[in-house]
């Protein structure tokens, strides 16, 4: 039972990170129809921002904030420079553009910084564990869960209560109609990228705490998995992205915890195959988006 609870919390922590990443992807996709491959590079950028901030003696909390701000700024800049010229084109065109942007950033990181990992010290207060009942629970796990919950809550409030948030939801439903209603397209799109940058930054910090180092490819694999989580949840649906992220987290942690040793090496293959099997039965994902045929 303890083992199960322990794994349950692990799954919540990992799933939460995927959910944050997936949500960032979904916010952009719902407005623009773009699947942003370069989302992972925003995570990586957060890592490097923190690394250099610490190098220059910036206090730890401020360094984290710098990291998130950097990712946010980069996300908005990315849209201005790279994605605006292909704004109204097909999903494939935008996806390829973002793939190229992602590759260019990898190579820039490699050449300008280093191909090798840069270590980032995780504060001692975070590496320990707290005892709750009879369980030892990692501080980082708890923090991840807490940060995820707060982020999701804050975003929900923003989308439901603020005027800009409501405009964003309208744009996610039907961008053209939203524009006819006087919603400022550039503002909405920039905000979407800004939000995705903040979420990528936060997810980047959580990921960093788990690994303790940053390298040019840090964000690539988690974002690939987040893509799959988003499709699992239902492409275009924000709540679907969160649900998909948590499901993927639970599948991965569950397999790691309960697979026999001999097949443990196959866990990535098994988890992704499970997801594709789900899609076989629900091709639209779990939260399907309805589209009228006229």
């Amino acid at each position: 039972m303890e083992f199960f609870l322990q794994q349950f919390l692990n799954a919540l922590a990992l799933g939460g990170t995927y959910a944050l990443l997936g949500l960032g992807l979904a916010v952009v996709f719902s407005v623009l129809g773009l699947i942003n491959f370069a989302h992972g590079e925003l995570m990586t950028l957060t890592g490097y921002g923190i690394f250099y901030a610490l190098l220059f003696g910036v206090p730890y909390p401020l360094a984290l904030i710098i990291g998130v701000v950097l990712a946010t700024g980069a996300a908005i800049l990315m849209e201005r420079v790279a994605f605006r010229p292909v704004r109204n084109s097909s999903g494939t065109t935008m996806l390829l553009t973002s793939f190229a942007v992602s590759t260019i950033l990898h190579i820039l990181f490699q050449n300008l910084i280093s191909a090798r990992p840069k270590a980032i010290a995780v504060p001692n207060s975070l590496t320990g564990a707290v005892a709750i009942a009879d369980m030892q629970i990692g501080v980082i796990q708890l923090l991840s869960i807490l940060v995820t919950a707060v982020s999701l809550l804050a975003l929900t409030l923003f989308l439901r209560r603020s005027l800009l948030g409501i405009a964003m939801r309208a744009a996610a439903e039907d961008f053209n109609v939203a524009r006819l209603m006087g919603v400022n397209a550039n503002l909405v799109i920039s905000t979407a990228f800004g939000i995705s940058g903040v979420l990528a930054g936060i997810a980047g910090i959580l990921w960093l705490f788990q690994r303790g180092s940053v390298d040019p490819l840090m964000g690539f694999l988690p974002v690939l998995k987040a893509f799959i989580a988003v499709v699992l949840g239902g492409l275009g649906s924000l709540s679907g992205a969160v649900i998909g992220g948590f499901i993927l987290g639970f599948i991965e942690v569950g397999l790691r915890a309960y697979l026999p040793d001999g097949v443990l090496a196959y866990r990535d293959a098994i988890s992704l195959t499970l997801v594709i099997l789900v899609l076989f039965f629900w091709p639209q994902g779990i939260v399907a988006r309805r589209e009228a045929v006229r």
Binding site: I35, G91, L95, F227, I228, V230, V231, L235, V275, I276
Partner: peptide, 12 residues
């Protein structure tokens, strides 16, 4: 699967 979902599945 359709469109971008299919592409992501091939990535998987």
């Amino acid at each position: 699967l359709n469109g971008s979902s299919a592409t992501i599945a091939t990535l998987g």
